[in-house]
Amino acid sequence: MAFSDPSAPHDPGFTRRPVFVHRLDALARRLVPGGIIVLIVLVLSAPSGLPEVTSLLPSFVIASVFFWSVWRPAIMPAPGILALGLILDLVGFAPLGISALTLLLLHGVTLQFRYGLMRLSFMFLWIVFSFSALLTCLLQLLLTSLLGLALLPPQPAFFEAALAVGIYPLLAVFYTRVNRALHGPGHE
């Protein structure tokens, strides 16, 4: 399509159906990754016999938010992250809103440096993510301690960060495939 004045009126008779179908399709594509994450969070909160699944959930969400904030922020808009954080807190019986706040901060900071991060090699991006995850977990620990008016032991936060760092490469491989399948050549 040639560049045209965006404020010019569209011809409804000609464009309505394709635009509607296209929009529905685009919406579905945008909702799929977020839906997968919510589904995994809800399913993994059931006892599966795996140890430390409760620590895995926040780590998984931190890694997911970071990945999509760097590579396709449209999939992880701020309201979606807010909802995801709230679900995580409700399911995990953490003080409500703390995950939402820290995840939004992670998203915001990542978004600021997005174009620089996209140019990094996988190794460096992983290192950057490690620091981001650690800071996010420590912030969560700090906020939880503040709200509970009691200093909590820092080990769980480090453990959570370590898990996030550990599962990031696996998730990155998986999400890169999802990203390609949904938005690869021929879709955009």
Binding site: T54, G92, F93
Partner: peptide, 10 residues
């Protein structure tokens, strides 16, 4: 028991 409801610290 259908879920772990402790979170990170509980």
């Amino acid at each position: 028991v259908i879920a772990d409801a402790g979170g990170l610290y509980g």
